[in-house]
Design a protein around this nucleic acid. Structure first.
Lengths: 340, 340
DNA sequence: TTGTAAGCGTTATCAT
DNA sequence: ATGATAACGCTTACAA
């Protein structure tokens, strides 16, 4: 038979042959097994070092039915929020001897499915997922469930029963944000919200309404518009808000990118930022502090910490600390940060 | 013996048993092998579909001695340059049926080594690497070479003989940048350069000098300062430049982050941007267009394309299109982009 | 303390 | 056109 593998890497078989002992002895010696004599252990370990032996992980993965790899699916790494989140994930994974398989959906549902399929084939032990903003159909995650591959959703979580998730509750932060604007005297506050199926959008809307209610103000549905998070969509949303009879003097935007786009639109309309109109946003990016007109305040969503938490949750599931069907929802609290 | 694997996933063995045929027949039927009868083929494929059979990649990886996985090591995903590069890498890898194992060094040499070690153990087929800015010792890459795992370096490439690399030559872009400033009438042009061991730093310096030489101007060594790319280091560098006898009216900064930090420092010194002092930078980030004082021009480095090119190079090595020892250096040309 | 052998899922060689 | 079987590297139950 033709030898397919020719990496030339030494194996335990090789070591066993040279030392005239059995492979199992070598295996155990390499694992510091107590039943192995000190002399043999030493001989084995020395020869292994000499030969530059390195265990063949692919063999172990195969044999154990485990890959110590977790798949990460998220929309867009170029968004600061996600690149920060992935750092939290990666740091936690690596320090637990897991590696990280990456896939970006670019908010494309078809690609999302393809990536999940690929991760499933690669037999990742589990997945951490933030869904695309256009994803409506969840059958690919259903497939993972059937394959018994646990999934922890984070940040952009689907509105589905029985899932593990880590998210940041935006309602509290939004209440703080609207509170802040009301206290500064704003009475007509617009909101550029995201796609309605996102839980996060619902939370923002809820926070907005709760804050108004607290102040015994009436909620005007026209003041909340759903946008698609593109620059064009944001411009459209701003146009809508600015065309209302009541003059909007402040806007809560879906995230810092939307805020920046909204600022650009406002400037085109000759509005003076922080005078004619004030923006409050959600802190997806540290660079906003460098911009000409950063939002007056931002709701911090703790991406790094969410990444850590999601990974820890997944690891605890993989370690069997929890029943597979004991679905957990970890909700962190968002918090308003003033940009002085 | 205790059964370790209990994933319950159907195997070809299972299919063979149910159909009373041999595993090899099943394997071949699943691969559309020509020697298999149409009937058997159909029966096998149908049952496979029914059972939701999915090939066990870990077994194949093991058996083939190949993982169809490439390791990516880079300093920091939160830098827009790298997140853009990784998109180029990932897109190219996925469309060639490779997956991507991620590791961030955070510019820490020890961590870099640890990640390389881990990737080696995971038996990645090859690596794409951008080294940390403090990395002085390259023995971990030497280990990869010995393990016959090909590496393609990109962007931040080590100054080493016999490596595969993709990079963007900054000299040409830098010449254009300094030209641009000279034509605008600047005569005392500073440069905040990066750590001296980086090839990119050398190219910047060379471009700077070449442009001066072209205009028959004398090169003043005090005008180029090496910084460590932190905000503090940049402030220090600016301080040095501004304290010179000859008044610096323009500065070429190492990248957009350095530019933003330099702008902050200049503002603190009550300098008016684009009047008292003009900045030209290297285009690492799209957000710079949102900032209050974007650099007057930027040298574009084409991160996405570099990522694509690096991946294609690695894949061609893996496909055996090239001799392992036929080292290739692909150099793309940088280009100045004016920010009107 | 050490050895023997089965088994993980797949592919490929050699028979039939 | 199909089957039997070895081999990939490693772990582990069981035997000695």
């Amino acid at each position: 038979m033709r030898k397919v593998v020719s990496s030339g890497q030494p194996t335990i078989k090789e070591i066993a042959k040279r030392l005239n002992i059995s492979v199992s002895t070598v295996s155990r010696a390499l694992h510091d097994h107590h039943s192995i004599g000190l002399r043999t252990k030493a001989r084995v370990q020395q020869l292994a070092a000499e030969l530059g032996y390195e265990r063949n992980q692919t063999a172990i993965f195969f044999q154990q039915g485990k890959t110590f790899t977790i798949g990460i699916l998220l929309p867009e790494l170029s968004e600061a929020f996600f690149s920060s989140a992935i750092s939290g994930i990666e740091d936690t994974a690596y320090s637990n001897n897991y590696t990280v398989l990456l896939g970006q959906s670019h908010d494309d549902e078809a690609r999302e499915k393809q990536i999940i399929q690929s991760m499933k084939q690669h037999r990742v032990d589990g997945c951490i997922v933030s869904i695309g903003k256009n994803t409506r159909n969840y059958e690919h995650f259903e497939m993972l469930r059937q394959a018994k591959i646990p999934v922890v959703f984070f940040d952009r979580i689907p509105d589905l029963p029985n899932i593990h998730s880590v998210s940041c509750n935006l309602e509290s932060g939004t209440v703080q944000a609207v509170d802040f604007l009301l206290k500064k005297g704003h009475r007509v506050i617009g909101m550029i919200n995201g796609p309605e199926q996102l839980v996060a959008s619902k939370e923002r809307a809820a926070g907005y309404m709760r804050a108004l209610h607290k102040h015994r103000l009436k909620y005007d549905p026209e003041l909340i518009v759903s946008a698609d998070l593109t620059a064009a969509g944001t411009a459209e949303a701003m146009k809508q808000l600015l065309s209302l009879k009541r003059k909007v003097t402040a806007v809560v935007t879906f995230n810092d990118y939307v805020a920046m786009d909204a600022v650009q639109y406002a400037l085109k309309q000759k509005l003076e930022i922080n005078k004619d109109i004030t923006f409050v946003s959600y802190a997806n990016t540290p660079v906003s502090s460098y911009t000409a007109y950063p939002p007056a305040a931002s709701v911090e969503q703790f991406p790094y910490e969410q990444g850590q938490a999601a990974t820890n949750m997944l690891l605890s599931i993989l370690n069997g600390d929890h029943d597979f069907n004991d679905y957990q929802q970890l909700i962190m609290e968002s918090q308003l940060v003033l940009h002085t």
